[in-house]
Amino acid sequence: MIWQSLLLFFAAFLGGASVFLFRGDNHKTLRLILSFSGAYLFGITVLHLVPDAYHGNDNYVGVFILIGFLFQIVLEQFSDGIEHGHMHAHDHAAFPIGIMISLCLHGFLEGMPLAQGYQNQLVFGIALHHIPAAFALATVLINNKQSRNGVLFYVFLFAIMAPAGYFFSDALSRGGIGNLQHYFNRIMGVVIGIFLHISTTILFEAGPDHKFNRRKLIAVLLGVAVAVGGFVYEL
């Protein structure tokens, strides 16, 4: 899992650091990456994570999926949709504490499913998703008059969250943290709910008036196709 963790970290960190190279509001490539990753995450969640979560015949998994979905809505009250690539200015006095706590928790939880054995597929989707998210975070930090070093520090903090989530989840699934491994599927249910909210929001907000243009439609279809291709390959 070393190279996967490094990929997760550098995708987010370099995605955020690239804000110093690309200025302006026209980030079409990042939006296409976001659309692709949203579709890919949705496909992976439906094809892999949901069936696995129900594999243990736990009837309460669905409840925790709903909890995760609603929990992400709460997180977005503080992050203002940066996870989706939104770039809004915020009141400097209230920033970045709420946004950083929300984003770091979001990133930590997103890394948890990697312990379930779908690293090569999920790590790719999460890494792609974190590129525009980190770019949006850095943009908001700059708009709120953070210094260059401050921007890099907060981006670094966000970048280490997904790998940290993986290592925590791996220890949890192996029984290395108390007896919490008995509740692993319910914890995964929360993560599934978060993934469902993030991916569907990205898809619904794919363009003006919630309409797809041709390039974004192709990006979404490619994301789904890659997820289905990986699923078929494993059969």
Rank of each mutant, 00 (worst) to 15 (best):
L196I: 10
V155S: 03
F42N: 05
F36N: 11
H182Q: 04
A53R: 05
I142G: 09
L172W: 05
N144H: 11
H182G: 04
H84A: 08
H106R: 10
M87W: 09
S169Q: 03
N144I: 08
N59G: 15
N149D: 11
I177R: 03
V191N: 03
L109F: 02
G38Y: 15
S18H: 03
A219I: 01
I187E: 00
L203C: 02
R148F: 05
A89D: 14
Q121C: 12
V224H: 06
V61G: 10
L221R: 02
H88L: 13
G111W: 01
V220W: 04
L49M: 07
L109W: 03
V232H: 10
N185T: 13
G117W: 02
F156L: 08
I187S: 00
L7H: 07
L114N: 04
P113V: 02
H197I: 08
Y183F: 06
H106S: 06
I160A: 07
Y183Q: 11
N185V: 10
F168R: 02
I2S: 14
L32Q: 11
L21Q: 12
F156C: 13
A12M: 10
N144W: 03
F212H: 01
A17H: 14
G107T: 04
A227D: 01
D25R: 14
V140M: 05
A225W: 01
G107D: 09
L137C: 12
L203Y: 01
I33L: 15
M100K: 12
N57T: 05
L122Q: 07
L7P: 13
A136Q: 10
Y118P: 07
F168H: 00
L70W: 11
I187Y: 00
D52K: 06
D52S: 09
M100R: 03
H90D: 08
Y233A: 12
L47M: 09
M87L: 15
I33R: 11
S18Q: 03
H210V: 10
A162F: 00
M100S: 14
I192T: 05
P113H: 08
